[in-house]
Design a protein around this nucleic acid. Structure first.
Lengths: 203, 203, 203, 203
DNA sequence: CATGAATGAGAATTCATTCAT
DNA sequence: TATGAATGAATTCTCATTCAT
């Protein structure tokens, strides 16, 4: 039944309105009435598509994170090496945020203000993305691109932590510079670290 | 005037009460009345030491982050190489959080629920810590330990992002494993990255 | 026009659905959408048969109270004395409620939660029943069965108040005992009161 | 702790304000803000004395019903016979309602619109009053004033049902006549019933 | 006749902050 | 200094009713 609701045009209309309103007003100033107005529907209509306010936020995150995972998977598909795949992940991640500045503000800053419950639910959704990272790491280890002594969890946390922190800093600096341009250098860092190793570019 | 207040015993008493209350109840359930009760003072008394609720949280972060920076600086002092210094930073960071589980919950989870304004102020406080990281990176580049092509900002974001994400995951996993034990592997990752480079342990 | 509507099958279908829904969910949880679902029609269809929600409840009460009055009149018809007629009234009243536990809950508990306006309208409908009681009392006074000093209104209020309170208590006690069995004793009380008067059973 | 609150003047101030507001606006139009304004306090102050809106209503009923029971007990104290005691109960009941027309509206009409939960709680409070009735009935049976074949529950339901219905009718007729004047006749009815029994006044 | 998606008004409650004592 | 009773602003969600199909 909910699947049906998701396919009705107002479902995405409301989610997109929520992204705009939260980005422009902040999480705590994003009242349902504002979102409804932005979406061009009545307040009550929101509740035909979402159980409550929290449900809007989780759905928002699900939809957008689904797009993240889908986009990355698509970009990765044609690549042969884990190194190249990791690059596509970083690039795609930065690209999507660059292309939708509202979304960037919402995912990097505003949604983190949600309470613990919501954050745990968001983390569940995030798992799909983290598993994508894991797959790349394991592939890299298997084919000898990556160090065989890598701790999967720590490597994943470095990759996600670095990408996320880079994106957050960019948003907090009001997106003044070009995030997408950083993909190459970030990727290089993730592959080779800070240390001097006769570093040749990896790509 | 504030300096004077800081020296009065109730100042730290209230901050410590805030850490406990926020850790145990969550950011949004940490009412002034609860903090006052925990601190053993009346609600109104809090306002003799802090301008408002936000001021408690910033002060809390300042005090604790000051301790972070101080501790790391102390540990670093005796080390010769940037590599060693980076290790001490990671180790100390993890150690402090391991030793004060309430503080870990507050800084890694709860305080991030604050609004954008407060987060910007917290970021100001964080700068002292980030500058410490910068100093290590620059030293590493200068003496040839680190790659000369490092982008200072990105390297800092990788280091902080990785350490922070590792700590946050640990807290979200209810601190089930030993965070301090991860310092070595995390440090290795930061120095050498994921890539295969005939990886020898760096320490 | 309304008469025509009453004859269409969906009219009673909706009223019966309302009885079930109100009995099972309570007055305030008996939404139009639930009643419509139970009746097997669309929400909007309800408004083809009833002006508004209040109109459903009044109509419900009218239909059921009409059945009450009709049943009592029928039972009374063959009886000679006012005493016997009063007995038939009490017995029939209890019998109808015993036979339809949903109806009992609705009339004794749920419908009383309606607002003052609706209650006044319900009282109008109730008048038909109260007039039946009046007729019995007057007949009793005329033929010497009842005290000639009876105040008609007070006697009516005692009879209705007693029967109603007995029924309500029975419903609030979850209909655990047999209401119909109480008819004789209640009737005796109404005729002879509490006082000791060499009480012989009146029937 | 709550006992302390009850003794602070604002406790009764709020309850009395609630009686006025509910009587004048009806149960569903008695918003907290109206009650607060009438009581001369801020909305939030209400919640220092009452857990929630329902708690105001239960407390209101408790306080007033306590006054009912207390008044009746006091009046009964000096009387010798159950017949006289029953008279005092009816008279006091009618007198209290006559003297406080707002209270009459609230208890006879408005409070009955409350939901089932609240009604069950109100019924608990009512038990004190019903036990008073029971005591009178039992005493009357023991000393031979009342019929030894009385069913306690039914007799109680007749007495309460009659008094309550009489009061409710009076309120629904907008208190146009004098309720207190009816005490004697109602009492006579309760003692002797409708039947002709060479009825001499019982008092 | 029948549908059911859309509407939009309306109110209880919390909690940071104040200020008289 | 310290207290804690009082303040009052601010927002989600429900559901009777409508009307285009």
């Amino acid at each position: 039944m909910k699947e049906m609701k998701k396919n009705r045009p107002k479902y995405m209309q409301i989610i997109d309105a929520a992204v705009v309103i939260i980005a422009e007003n902040g999480y705590h100033q994003a009242q349902i009435s504002k979102i409804a107005k932005q979406a061009g529907v009545a307040d009550g209509t929101i509740y035909l598509y979402f159980k409550n306010k929290e449900d809007i936020l989780i759905s928002l995150f699900q939809e957008k994170m689904g797009y993240f995972v889908g986009s990355v998977e698509e970009k990765i598909a044609g690549k042969q090496t884990a190194t190249e795949k990791l690059y596509m992940l970083v690039e795609t991640h930065f690209k999507i945020l660059s292309d939708d500045r509202h979304l960037a503000i919402v995912t990097q800053l505003e949604l983190r203000q949600s309470n613990k419950d919501l954050r745990h639910k968001i983390n569940e959704v995030l798992k799909g993305y983290l598993m994508l990272i894991d797959k790349i790491i394991l592939e890299g280890i298997e084919n000898g691109e990556f160090s065989s002594s890598l701790d999967l969890r720590l490597a994943r946390q470095m990759i996600f932590g670095t990408v996320d922190e880079t994106a957050t800093s960019w948003v907090m600096n009001e997106q003044k510079y070009n995030l997408a341009d950083l993909a190459k250098a970030v990727h290089q860092l993730l592959i080779s670290g800070c240390g001097y190793q006769d570093n040749k570019p990896v790509l």
